[in-house]
């Protein structure tokens, strides 16, 4: 199968601190790949490097055959990669509706169908459409952040810790949405600390520790792996 995204030997650093050390991974079309790991393992750094927010110090990132390693973020978004950043990062002083419109910033066609989809998926957003995004609860902000990313009609969705700070019920809502997106054929990279949830939706899994890929494999196989069970699932 053809790789939608392939990360080849990518390293990245904040000043002299090396956050990623020659990380390689790939995402096939329509696949949901989870990246799990502890705090500070480099998961978010990897997301930033893929989106072009942080330059890779070495290595190559390919997306649908093109080398996007040195592309600016807006060009990467235009190519079809959308990211839901860690901590939601909604535009707190814009209304919910304006946040959604920002998600469609580069589109020239009619965005109403996607707005309708967002409101159908999360009816609470329609109720709050004229409210400032900053006044929403954490869970509502997460729904908004996901809907906003989908407004660009991406081919690859990067989700950075969507369950962070949410109640168990909301975590389930968020993961149900991820599962539905996956079933609709969207390619997804899911970064999570919540390994159990990640394993429940992902096809394949990478375990990142101190900036390096420690383990990789099929989600079902890794679920049985004693190392994963001990450290990340706590069984």
């Amino acid at each position: 199968m053809e790789h939608v995204l392939s990360v080849e030997q990518v390293s990245a650093a904040y000043g002299s601190i090396r956050a990623l050390k020659e990380v390689s991974l790939h995402v096939d079309r329509g696949e949901c790949v989870a990246i799990i790991g502890a705090n500070g393992a480099g998961k978010s750094t990897l997301m930033k490097v893929i989106s072009g927010l942080l330059p890779a110090s070495s290595g190559t990132i390919r997306y649908e055959g093109s080398d996007i390693t040195k592309w600016p973020t807006h060009k990467i978004v235009a190519a079809g990669i959308a990211q839901v950043p860690e901590g939601r990062q909604v535009f707190s002083e814009l209304s919910v509706l304006d946040n959604l419109k920002m998600g469609a910033y580069q589109r020239k066609d009619d965005i109403q169908p996607e707005i309708d989809t967002a409101f159908q998926t999360f009816p609470i957003l329609e109720k709050r459409m004229h409210q400032m995004a900053g006044s929403l609860s954490g869970g509502e902000q997460q729904m908004l952040a996901m809907s906003r990313a989908l407004m660009s009609k991406p081919k690859l969705l990067l989700l950075d810790e969507p369950s962070m700070g949410l109640s168990p019920l909301l975590v389930k809502t968020v993961f149900d949405t991820v599962r539905r997106l996956h079933e609709s054929g969207l390619s997804i990279v899911l970064v999570e600390q919540n390994a159990r949830m990640a394993l429940s939706v992902a096809d394949r899994l990478y375990v990142l520790a101190t900036g390096q890929i420690e383990l990789e494999g099929n989600a079902e196989e890794l679920q049985q792996d004693p190392r994963v069970r001990d450290i990340y699932l706590g069984i």
């Binding site: 072009g52 973020t73 978004v77 990062q89 535009f91 419109k101 920002m102 910033y105 660009s152």
Partner: peptide
Amino acid sequence: KVGRAMQAVSMNRSAAALMGVNMQ
């Protein structure tokens, strides 16, 4: 659209970049 993007950039620069706003 541009005015809204300027507001978005002032609120959260990297999130605005992730929406595809050309910073330059």
